[in-house]
Computed example of a mutant assay.
Amino acid sequence: MTAPGAPTPREVFARLSAGISAGRWDELAVLYAEDAVVEQPFALPPAPPRLEGRAEIDRHFRAAARGPLELRARDVVVHETADPEVIVAEFGYDGRVVPPGRAFRVANIQVLRVRDGLIAETRDYHDHPAFARAMRDG
């Protein structure tokens, strides 16, 4: 159960999305519980299909910060579920590979469980082949 006054799952997702869109990768891990789990069923090697713990999630985000991608969330739709801790977010990313500046679009769905204002677990269904194509063709 979530503590009174803690951010809602919708608010936590909004912070995560805004941080990614602003390129504030080094600030994102604090949104996750110490024992959080991120599952990425469609991840392509070398990306791990599962991240365990805030420290590993932080390393993942910091690696993304060193990469050539800029992402901006668009068309965000958040669905509430019967479980007050769980939301489903559908959204797209308008992306850019820098350099050279080539633009691309990627579809995404995230299922988030937020407990006491922190992300406890997510299942991230990003279009990893589209990311790979953008990097290859970028």
Rank of each mutant, 00 (worst) to 15 (best):
S21M: 04
G23R: 01
A22T: 03
P100I: 00
V78F: 05
G23S: 06
A120K: 06
I87D: 09
L51V: 09
P7A: 06
H79A: 12
V78W: 04
E52Q: 15
G101W: 01
P46Y: 10
I20L: 12
R115N: 01
Q40P: 10
A47E: 14
P9N: 03
A55E: 15
A43R: 08
A3E: 14
A107T: 07
E52I: 13
P84Q: 02
R62V: 13
L118M: 03
T122L: 04
E85W: 01
G95S: 05
I109Y: 03
R72H: 13
R123M: 07
T81F: 09
A130L: 04
P9T: 00
S21T: 09
H128E: 13
L16V: 03
V97F: 04
G5M: 04
P7V: 00
L118W: 00
V97H: 10
D35W: 02
P100N: 01
L44F: 10
P41E: 10
R113W: 01
G5A: 00
V106K: 00
A14Y: 03
Q40E: 15
G5D: 09
Y125M: 09
R15P: 01
E90G: 03
S21G: 15
E80C: 04
L31Q: 13
Y32C: 14
W25V: 06
L44K: 13
V37A: 07
A82P: 05
R133C: 01
P49Y: 11
E52D: 15
L69G: 05
P68Q: 04
V97K: 03
I20R: 04
G53E: 12
A63M: 14
A55P: 04
A18D: 14
H128M: 11
A55T: 14
G53Q: 07
P100C: 02
I109V: 15
E27Q: 15
A64W: 12
R54I: 05
A3K: 00
V76T: 14
V77L: 13
G19L: 02
R96K: 03
G95F: 05
L16M: 09
N108W: 03
V12N: 06
H79M: 06
I109N: 08
T122K: 05
V37P: 05
A103P: 12
Q40R: 15
H128A: 15
R50V: 14
A64H: 06
E11L: 01
R59G: 07
I119Q: 01
R62M: 12
S17E: 12
H126E: 12
L28C: 14
P49H: 13
V111Y: 09
V76D: 07
R74M: 07
T81V: 06
V86N: 05
L16G: 10
A3G: 00
P49N: 12
A14D: 12
T122V: 04
P99S: 07
P100E: 02
